[in-house]
Simulated assay, not measured.
Amino acid sequence: MAADSVAPAAILTAVLTLAGCGSGDSTVSKTPEAGPGPAPTSVAKPAAKPAPSPAPAPADPCAVNLAAPEIARAVSELPRDPRSNQAWSPEPVAGNYNECAQLSAVIVRANTNSENPNTRAVLFHLGKFIPTGVPDTYGFNGVDRSASTGDTVALQYSGGFHGLASTVKFRWNGGGVELMGNVG
Rank of each mutant, 00 (worst) to 15 (best):
H162I: 13
G174W: 11
A7S: 14
I11S: 00
N65K: 08
R109T: 06
V134W: 12
L66A: 08
E91G: 11
S26V: 11
K30C: 09
G35M: 03
R145L: 08
F124Q: 15
V183Q: 07
V134G: 03
E178P: 07
S23M: 05
T41F: 00
G20R: 10
T149Q: 11
E33Q: 14
D136Y: 06
L16F: 02
G150E: 15
E77Q: 15
R171N: 03
I130C: 07
N113L: 07
V168D: 10
D25H: 09
P38A: 12
R73M: 08
P61M: 01
A68T: 02
S104F: 10
D25V: 07
N96Q: 06
S114D: 10
D151V: 03
Q102G: 04
C100F: 09
C100H: 10
R83H: 12
V134L: 12
S76C: 00
S84N: 04
T119Q: 08
K30H: 15
C21K: 14
A67N: 13
N111Y: 05
V93I: 15
P135N: 04
T41S: 09
G184R: 14
P58W: 01
P36C: 01
D81A: 08
E77V: 09
H162Y: 14
V153E: 04
G139M: 06
T31C: 13
T149H: 09
S42C: 04
G142R: 08
N113I: 00
P40R: 11
P56F: 01
P38V: 07
N85E: 15
T132V: 15
P90W: 10
D25I: 09
S26W: 10
F124P: 13
P58Q: 02
I130K: 08
V108N: 03
P40H: 01
S23W: 05
G95F: 07
V168L: 05
P54V: 08
A10W: 00
L103V: 04
A154S: 03
K128L: 06
A147P: 13
V75C: 09
V153I: 05
K45P: 06
A2D: 07
F170A: 03
S158L: 09
S5M: 13
E33L: 14
A51T: 08
D81H: 14
K30F: 13
S89I: 03
S42Q: 06
E77P: 03
N111V: 04
Y138A: 12
V108F: 05
P69A: 10
R120Q: 05
I71C: 04
T132A: 12
A121F: 07
R171Y: 01
S89A: 10
N173K: 01
C100Y: 13
S53L: 09
G181H: 12
P40M: 13
F161L: 11
Y138V: 12
P56D: 01
A68Q: 02
P131T: 08
T13I: 02
G35F: 08
A165F: 01
P79N: 06
V108A: 03
A105P: 01
F140Y: 12
P135D: 07
L103Y: 01
P8L: 02
R80E: 08
V122C: 01
P58D: 00
P38Q: 07
I107M: 02
T112S: 15
Q102M: 05
N116P: 00
L155R: 10
A121R: 08
Y138G: 14
A34F: 13
A44N: 05
F170P: 02
G20I: 11
A39Q: 13
